[in-house]
Nucleic acid binder design. Structure first.
Lengths: 113, 113
DNA sequence: TCTATATATGCAAATATTATTATATTTGCA
DNA sequence: TGCAAATATAATAATATTTGCATATATAGA
């Protein structure tokens, strides 16, 4: 199983709007750096930095094609994560049954000290 | 639907080892601050700070029980996200079919310029 | 009313993240 | 061999996050 540390790294890798866009794009297929430049409104070095972070975290990888670097998805959690963050949740989780909202409530299990 | 921006914020809220642990614990049920102190190796003010961040992002909420604050999960994406990051993926995504690894490869689609 | 308990808040220091700019590296091709 | 394209790296600056510490607030109970 993924360690806590690794789980957090994947979340961190995705916790940036530009990187989510990069990953969504990679979901469609292999892309090289200049492809990203076309639709991300950021500088080339910045694209490279985000890509290299994603690679450091093991989320993506690339292969060389002449002077292009062709990036592709590597971590299998990515497609699932993208599906999840796009999912439409209708409502909040149900408040715990006990929840009194007033200040008189009782903690749902025995307190421990 | 929640905006991508909001979703990224939730990911950011979760992208910290302490907060992942807090959320995993909340998945089991309502907990008050001192419950967290028992297994997180951080100070009480720090626990409170993480909790208040999670609340600011709409991920959790609490109700009062005397002088206890009983925290619970609110954003329905959380259980799904936690399940996902704990999931055990056997292998990496298949490398793109074209991938030559050598430096002779051709970009899988027509290059655009 | 006084005290102890549970928790939050404010602020500063340490650290991390992001974007920017300048420069370097690699490779294809003339 | 030399130049331009594609991309990376490094240094910096701006900003955000995280933590520790001191202190504040609220409430239950004596």
């Amino acid at each position: 199983m993924r360690s806590i540390r690794h789980r957090v790294e994947v979340l961190k890798a995705m916790a940036h709007p530009v990187r989510v866009q990069i990953l969504e794009e990679l979901l469609k297929g292999v892309k090289c750096v200049s492809d990203f430049e076309e639709f991300l409104e950021i500088s080339q070095p910045n694209v490279s930095q985000h890509l290299s972070l994603l690679r450091r975290f093991g989320v993506i990888d690339y292969y060389m094609d002449g002077r292009l670097r062709c990036y592709f998805l590597k971590d299998p959690i990515v497609p699932d994560l993208i599906t999840l963050i796009k999912k439409d949740y209708i409502k909040e989780l149900p408040a715990p049954a006990c929840c009194p909202v007033t200040k008189k409530g009782k903690y749902p299990r025995e307190r421990r000290r």
